[in-house]
Design a protein around this nucleic acid. Structure first.
Lengths: 237, 237
DNA sequence: CGGTTTCAGTGAACGGTGTTTACAAGAGTT
DNA sequence: AACTCTTGTAAACACCGTTCACTGAAACCG
């Protein structure tokens, strides 16, 4: 069964503990508390030992980001699977709600992954759930028609590239899409939806709304309604 | 002329240099480089001397945030003043463009001020330019009518509070507004615009668009058009 | 003017950090 | 049993925030 040697198993186990400790420190005390020595202390070893597993503190933080993305993707997929309606509109709602819920429950992780002026995001882990859903959404016939000429010509080149990314993301899951369905107008609205979703969630997590919102959830729901209408869903819920 | 004593002048000058050094370090090398010892080194003094000016490293960072907000507000006001059209729609455009330009030119400052899970923002300095413009925008007759019943009832309480904040912000500048003009529908759309504006700018600064956008400016312009249309401006430009 | 107070700045120290280096000791291999 | 590979250690370096006792000069006051 376990083909790994004893050494490999121990090493993997230690690495798991390192990630776990780093994550706990981030959650409990913020980014600045994720310290090599603090991690080592949690494992009962010394700091230099960590260099057998990671090249530097920075590399460890990058790994932490990837872990966070993976966990978030898992949480989003779970909430997506919990929706048994089979309607794409409901699924979009479920994932958007899941994203907000996750961000509010994990503000430190959210800040680290989504609001650091870092490299352009090793999105591999994280983006897939969004991309796949966006692809399915666009492929679905429930989506109203947005003519390509709704969007400025200057954007065409970028949107075509994104179109390709989406088609790849969908085809990985075995779904075939005629590119007539995937026109640029729809893709443009998907991007705009991401802007609004991210904007609301980030503002809420960072407390940057222009006034104190007593209960932001209805505002989020309202925005979601508008978003889905813009994308082309009838109000079915 | 200068009523301040010699000591007070020197102290003020040193404090100015501290802020300036801190700002330079942030811009050049990021948040983590804003170090008491690094600042002191730039001034040719020792780190403990800084405790004569700030209670802690954290207090100094907070001051830095305030400075950044003030500078940004000044930049935004400057771009606002540069617009001589007199049309509120153009002024909104000018300020939104100024905000994006500032954020892209100052990513580290943007990240520190807008994307840290901190206290709910000493918005006093920063928010004023947005609030004032939003108030004027709403007061302007160019704004289309959004009925109050467009917005869910649950939001009314919060929006009324924001309505009061806006009216205060405007009245500070001597403008009187009849509250019939400032109805909740308009206020709601202003909040939604802030969500989209912030969302786009933050995504661009942090490189979190779902695909590589070669030139995000047209996309921003496009979003701005949509925003202004939603708020109720005819396309006049 | 002389004495006193105020205060910006210093140097040393404490415990914390990332990182490098030389070294020990066990696991795996031959 | 001898050898290598791997995982850990301890010591050291330079840096960090912060505290404390101190100096020296400016400001104030009788």
């Amino acid at each position: 069964m376990t083909e790994a040697t004893r050494r490999e198993r121990l090493r993997a186990e230690t690495e798991r503990e390192i990630r776990q400790a780093a994550r706990a420190l981030l959650v409990e005390s913020g980014r600045d508390a994720v310290t090599l020595r603090a991690i080592a202390r949690k494992l009962g070893i010394t700091a230099p030992a960590l260099y057998r597993y990671y090249d530097s503190h920075d590399a460890l933080l990058r790994q932490l980001c990837d872990d966070i993305c993976a966990d978030m993707a898992a949480a989003l997929y779970a909430d997506l699977a919990a929706d048994t309606s089979g309607q794409v509109g409901c699924q979009v709602r479920a994932v958007c709600h899941a994203f907000r819920r996750w961000a509010l429950a994990h503000p430190q992780e959210f800040a680290l992954v989504f609001a650091s002026p870092r490299d352009p995001l090793g999105a591999d882990q994280f983006g897939s759930v969004f991309l796949q859903l966006a692809g399915r959404l666009i492929a679905s016939n429930l989506v109203a028609n947005h003519a390509d000429d709704d969007v400025p010509e200057i954007l065409h080149e970028d949107l075509v590239r994104f179109q390709q990314v989406l088609m790849d993301a969908v085809s990985v899951h075995g779904v075939v899409v005629e590119d007539s369905v995937l026109n640029l107008g729809k893709i443009y609205h998907v991007v705009q939806s991401w802007v609004r979703l991210y904007g609301h969630v980030a503002l809420e997590v960072f407390g940057r709304f222009p006034f104190a919102v007593s209960n932001p959830e209805p505002m989020f729901d309202s925005m979601l309604d508008q978003m889905l209408t813009d994308i082309g869903f009838a109000e079915d819920a």
